[in-house]
Design a protein around this nucleic acid. Structure first.
Length: 887
RNA sequence: GGGCGAUUAGUUCAGAGGUAGAACGCUUCCUUGACACGGAAGAGGUCAGAAGUUCAAUUCUUCUAUCGCCCACCA
């Protein structure tokens, strides 16, 4: 694909590179999933974004994580299907189109149903792919040719089939119940679509006169307007205070209706006065009481939230207006006994935040209990795993207390319910296609149900409807059940739980996915939920344009820690963008030194120095760790591991140490072997980083000698070394310590970084340390700009007028002659001694404690002993030096 | 009412039963042949509070406080 090797500019500019490679990947068919492939399957279905949406950071995070998984699995030899698509989003889309019509002074009723739906389709064609195009900017590697929409013909017929089957199994029913009604959206909502908000309202005490007696009873209500629909007063059967009144009658104030006092267990006899007004048509509790006692249901509020003819003089008033008016009237007539402030939760529409009205109407429901039970059983048996595990409990809690699901919506945009009524004989026909005639009476004029289905009904089928169900497709056979579902916790109930229920029911008991990875919610830097209405939305596309998609992806990955929300800020992304530049420049450096190198070039073990062996050991460790981290969805840890490895080890140490060899200062054999090590380090590192930052790694990959073909078509790296050599690692740690100490002394002595230090003396207490220092002398000199290192054995004369640092096993002396600020050096030593003194005391105390010596594991004790010995020896040596300095 | 999570450096956040880490910010020095979108060195923390378990707790348990979220038919 790129016969000419790419030359890299001095700094990384993401924009042209990202567009270029995305196009190459697509045209090369990298994202295509082949159901006939012999490779093992890995599949993800995208949580379909709403067609109304434009990409927000939540989508960006969600899809970045999915993309990282898909790309990793491709490299690991899986046949990957990432199924893309969008959701028709009933209420949201209808609202958007209605708003745009309203701007032209047109209502949907002016157009009529058919024309309106036509408009929505037009809108969808025009704007519905916005979000899909935005996803591509992030690098999402979906199999775009398979893109689906929840109202595609195929998916729509899947919806009808599911509906009909559930109806025939008795798992869908129709009936007149009290449901959540949004008077603004003019539709029923499921319980989940109601958001509860704690609000301070008024608690009114209202007197009802007892019929035929002087007295009255007092009830409490937060919604006085519902008094008009009262059809009973309830008392707990064992309420000592009030049960003598059961069976008597009272008069509803304002409307003067006579209603009975009944007994019912739902009343808490301790609460308030012990009397509860019962309004079966306007309160869910009261509705149940009404059913038990066969009470009349009097509706006083209509579907617009306006008082109806049954409300008498209040007819035509808005429900809240009527509340005030009734309170005023009650007060006038002396029936208002008191008003208190009361904090209670108020239900709001999750789309428009209007106050929800419990409303009595004919609706369709899914009998959820049997479906939920199956879901719980499959999860308990371990076929579905939630990650992190804490969400399992949340899911169980909801599933185990599930209530029937109201699925009918009084909207025009959505899957129309496949039910027809025969007005002649009253027959109800539920079928996939419109029936020609009533099977009972033969009437040909049938009326289809006006309602559409809850959007989440079709989303629940997504994992199999997108793969062609109910046909037995190759796609289903290969890729269902999907491997993992990646989503936010906010839709566990809306979507995850329902996919599990429907998946099990319609896919012969096969789960829709094995793992559910629940990620954080992205909030703004103040920790607020981002939302269009709050205007605190960070637009991912702006970020991509400004920082590059890779920077944003790495930021998401790094911030994704299991079980915690992400507070995103631009500064944060800026930090991770710097990493791209670092990687870019490290690669440039490598490439400058690899001009005559070849892919597959081998090193000779005898030509490797300590730092070469060290980086190969570290590379092997990192490769192994990365493989495990990706397997366990540890995105944050994996991103940080790579960040630290590349920046803190490869760049800060290895590249610096490799410079002389690459220049040829150490001979041709060393140069060739170092090149080989460099090739190995970059080859594996770029691969390990690729799933997270695909664009920059692809560009760099192409520039290296090993970069033939697309990086993602290569294989995930294996550790280069079979065994990690611990001694190499600890030796290198020792050398790095020495270098840091010398640099530290340099800074202490205020010697500028570029100014060479003529001489440093190191006293080695062991032969081992001595030989290691000899072996690495030139590396130490290189990184400290020391011209000469004098090694001397313990007991030999120490250099005079030196800055000193004492380490385990060695003492480092930097002679500074007259520059030595004796007073300052004494202060420093004294501070060190004080610290050591403390540590020594602590250590002695510990080792003198018989409990510790008895019970602590052997290795801890010996470690403690060694530390103490080191500290004591250091203490002694520093004291000695201090003495000689002050003499 | 039930449940979950958080509390660690000035800030944003990692982390582990054995003496605390990163990034940003801050201080000092440095345009050295990959990178100033950089390098080196440094300051900065009673790991919210209390009790318990343990040889050992910042890490495990319980309680408390503060903050946040979810669920619930509180009339």
């Amino acid at each position: 694909m790129n016969p000419e090797k790419i030359t890299l500019g001095k700094s990384y500019d993401p924009v042209p590179i990202e567009d270029k490679w995305y196009e190459v990947w697509r045209s090369e068919g990298l994202f295509k999933a082949d159901p006939e492939s012999p490779k093992p399957p890995f599949s993800i279905v995208i949580p379909p974004p709403n067609v109304t949406g434009s990409l927000h950071v939540g989508h960006a995070l969600d899809n970045t994580l999915q993309d990282i998984l898909c790309r990793t699995k491709r490299m690991q030899g899986y046949e990957v299907l990432w199924m893309p698509g969008t959701d028709h989003a009933g209420i949201a889309t209808q609202n958007v189109v209605e708003r745009s019509l309203a701007a032209q002074g047109v209502s949907r009723h002016d157009l009529g149903r058919e024309a309106f739906v036509e408009k929505v389709w037009e809108w969808k064609e025009q704007y519905g792919s916005t979000i899909i195009n935005q996803l591509k900017k992030l690098g999402a590697s979906c199999d775009w040719e398979r893109e689906r929409f929840t109202m595609d013909e195929g998916l729509s017929s899947a919806v009808r089939k599911v509906f009909v089957d559930l109806y025939n199994k008795g798992l869908i029913y129709r009936g007149k119940y009290l449901i959540n009604w949004c008077p603004r959206c003019h539709t029923a909502l499921s319980d989940l679509e109601v958001e509860h908000e704690e609000k301070t309202g008024k608690f009114y005490e209202v007197a009802y006169r007892i019929v035929g007696e002087d007295g009255s009873i007092v009830v409490m209500t937060t919604r006085p307007e519902t008094i008009l629909g009262d059809t009973a007063i309830a008392v707990h059967p064992r309420d000592e205070r009030n049960r003598h009144l059961i069976g008597k009658k009272v008069i509803v104030p304002v409307v003067d209706r006579v209603i009975p006092i009944i007994e019912d267990n739902m009343v808490d006899p301790e609460f308030g006065t012990g009397f509860v007004k019962i309004t079966p048509a306007h309160d869910p509790n009261d509705f149940l009481v009404g059913q038990r006692h066969n009470l009349e249901q009097i509706q006083v509020i209509d579907d617009n939230g306006v008082m109806n003819e049954a409300a008498g003089k209040y007819q035509g008033m808005d429900r809240f207006e009527a509340r005030d008016a009734i309170v005023e009237d009650l007060e006038k007539m002396g029936a208002l006994m008191g008003v208190q402030d009361k904090v209670h939760s108020v239900g709001e529409c999750y789309r428009c935040h209007s106050v929800i009205e419990p409303y009595l109407s004919e609706q369709w429901f899914v009998r959820a209990k049997p479906l939920a039970d199956a879901g719980v059983a499959k999860t308990k048996s371990g076929e579905i795993d939630f990650v992190p595990d804490q969400w399992t409990g949340v899911y169980y809690q909801w599933m185990e207390n599930i209530r029937d699901w109201c699925i009918s919506r009084q909207l025009w945009w959505g899957h129309r319910i496949p039910a027809w009524y025969c007005d002649t004989c009253g027959e109800l026909i539920v079928a996939m296609e419109a029936p020609k005639a009533c099977p009972k009476c033969g009437e040909t004029h049938l009326r289809q149900d006006e309602d559409v289905l809850d959007t989440w009904f079709s989303s629940a089928l997504w994992p199999f409807s997108t793969m062609g169900w109910p046909e037995k497709t190759k796609l289903l056979e290969k890729f269902y059940p999907t491997s993992v579902l990646v989503t936010g916790f906010d839709i566990i109930f809306f979507w995850v739980a329902r996919m599990i229920m429907f998946g099990l029911e319609f896919m012969d008991g096969e789960v829709p996915f094995h793992d559910v990875y629940i990620h954080a919610l992205v909030r703004d830097e103040k920790g607020q939920k981002m939302s269009k209405s709050k205007g605190n939305v960070i637009d991912p596309l702006t970020i991509v344009a400004e920082y590059g998609a890779d920077a944003m992806r790495l930021t998401f990955a790094a911030l994704t820690v299991q079980g915690r929300d992400i507070f995103l800020s631009k500064e944060r992304i800026g930090t991770y963008r710097l990493f791209m530049n670092k990687l870019w420049n490290a690669s440039r450096f490598a490439l400058m030194n690899l001009e005559d190198a070849e892919a597959g070039q081998k090193w000779d073990d005898k030509d490797l120095l300590l730092h070469d062996k060290w980086i190969l050991n570290r590379l092997s460790q990192v490769t192994e760790e990365m493989t495990q981290l990706m397997d366990g969805y540890y995105f944050g840890e994996s991103a940080r591991l790579m960040y630290d490895f590349v920046w803190g080890e490869v760049c800060d140490w290895y590249l610096e140490l490799s410079k002389p060899a690459l220049r040829g200062d150490e001979g041709e054999a060393r140069r060739k072997s170092t090149q080989a090590v460099l090739l190995a380090v970059f080859e594996d590192t770029l691969k390990l980083l690729h799933p997270t930052i695909p664009f920059v790694t692809e560009e760099l990959w192409q520039a290296f000698p090993f970069g033939t073909g697309i990086i993602e078509r290569t294989s995930w790296p294996k550790p280069r070394l079979d065994n990690i050599d611990e001694k190499t690692l600890s030796d290198m740690d020792f050398v790095m310590d020495i270098i840091r100490v010398i640099r530290n002394l340099r800074a202490e002595a205020r010697i500028a970084p570029q100014q060479p230090i003529p001489r440093v003396a190191i006293m080695a207490h062991t032969a081992e340390a001595s030989s290691l220092l000899k072996e690495t002398e030139s590396q130490i000199k290189l990184l400290t700009k020391v011209e000469e290192i004098n090694l001397f054995a313990a007991g030999a004369a120490k250099p005079e007028r030196s800055l000193t640092t004492i380490l385990d096993g060695v003492e480092v002396y930097m002679p500074v002659g007259d520059l030595l600020d004796v007073e300052k050096e004494v202060q420093r030593m004294k501070a060190d001694l004080a610290k050591l003194q403390k540590d020594i005391e602590k250590g002695r105390e510990k080792l003198a404690n018989p409990q510790f010596v008895d019970r602590a594991p052997e290795e801890i004790i010996s470690k403690e002993k060694a530390t103490l010995a080191d500290n004591e020896s250091k203490f002694e040596r520093i004291s000695e030096n201090l003495k000689s300095l002050t003499e």
